[in-house]
Design a protein around this nucleic acid. Structure first.
Lengths: 234, 234
DNA sequence: ATTTTTATTTACCGATCGGTAAATACTAAA
DNA sequence: TTTAGTATTTACCGATCGGTAAATAAAAAT
């Protein structure tokens, strides 16, 4: 049994942890190493259009210009690919989210909140990936963790709460802040993440400035009074 | 051609419009006529758990205790079955929705709005079908009408607007009412229609009273100030 | 040039999908 | 009882799914 094992080739590349120091004799890095990245990018493009279940590895492979077994070669499974993509998006979104709050403390409440919404819409309307993927997948959950990278949504919300508490100098346990952030995320997932549907209901083009203006108007009307109440309550 | 046609049996029952007066000789209504209803009921149970695309006629047939071709026999296609189910739900929801507003005009603004939310949650938490199906399917839309019965969501929102304008004596074009109702539907689709996910984020049981209380609290905080502004603006 | 290792493709597996045709079970009219 | 017509099931179709094994292409090390 052990005698056979040492003859077996690894036959997959998605766990580079093994054979770390074992000097490779064969063909170490012939390809530009961009196939993995191309698959990740393609995965993102496909998972923006289809839920985790509805998307297929064949769609993603086609989008990346490779055959679908390459996905299993580099990532092991559709699930692990989704997780890797979700982690990528989370890591790239985190600093952006933090920057939305820069300098708000030196402005009036209304001016500051308005600027925050503008910054947020500027980014998410151009790069709606995170909100879109959240919208597509959050609904189907029976048991959490059915969607592989679902924890990143929770981490994103927790991060935003931390940033708000830090930058806006909020104190205490403050269940109201949690509620505020949660409602805010829900609305943004609907209005930005599901904009292709939402805009159609309003008879607008989701990419048009008119729809963006509608979303800003609605967000301000819904959340500014609450935001004011939270900050004045300090 | 015509000679052949008159020999062909209808071979399906989903369009009873033809042969209306032609006296049937064979087996008119042997079955209790409940198979169609059983399929409709099963469809509702399945379409609450899975999106239109993710649900399968085989799931529905199994739930109804029949073989899956019966669905095509009675409804013609999965699409037409979904449409029939959506219409059923719409017709049963309409009067309920109207009753939520009964007598509110004789109460204080806060008392009235609070009662409205309670009535709405009492019903939708027990019968979340409409909101759940909206949540499951609204996201996937690229082109509207990809989801067969999508128009019923629009009709439901339009009906609510009409009822509000009538019962609360609102006048004018009032784009703000449209915006209010639209935001309200979005939140309810999230909090009730996708409660299995939402409650898990809050670390609650979606069927527990605690979650219901959270939703009511959030709804009041979000919408009461706006509601007040709309009515006082009259 | 040969060997060794990696990267990629081809060909398949079993499962499931929506849908259909044909066979069959059933029941009421003749 | 026969017959005609309906209700239901069985068996299939082509397509797609996630995943795997094996064949093949490619390149570095020998």
């Amino acid at each position: 049994m052990t005698g056979i094992e040492k003859k077996i080739r690894s036959s997959s590349a998605h766990s580079p942890s093994d054979n770390l120091k074992k000097k490779a004799k064969g063909r170490p890095l012939a390809n530009d190493g961009n196939v993995r990245e191309r698959i990740l990018k393609a995965a993102r493009e496909v998972f923006i259009l289809h839920s985790f279940k509805a998307a297929s590895t064949r769609m993603i492979a086609k989008q990346a210009g490779v055959e679908h077994p390459m996905i299993h070669y580099y990532f092991g499974s559709k699930e692990k690919l989704f997780y890797a993509m979700a982690e990528t998006i989370y890591n790239e979104t985190l600093p952006v989210q933090e920057a939305w709050f820069d300098g708000l403390e030196r402005m009036s409440l209304h001016e500051g909140f308005s600027l925050f919404i503008d910054r947020m819409l500027n980014y998410t309307m151009k790069t709606p990936d995170a909100l879109r993927i959240a919208a597509l997948n959050a609904v189907n959950i029976g048991d959490i963790e059915e969607i592989p990278g679902f924890r990143f949504i929770l981490m994103s919300m927790a991060a935003m709460r931390r940033i708000m508490e830090e930058k806006l100098k909020l104190r205490g346990p403050n269940r109201e802040i949690e509620m505020f952030i949660y409602c805010f995320f829900s609305i943004m997932i609907s209005f930005v993440g599901a904009r292709s549907c939402q805009a159609q209901i309003l008879n607008m083009n989701p990419l048009d400035e008119k729809y963006r203006a509608w979303v800003k108007d609605a967000s301000m009307t819904l959340f500014y009074p609450w935001f004011k109440k939270i900050l004045i309550g300090q």
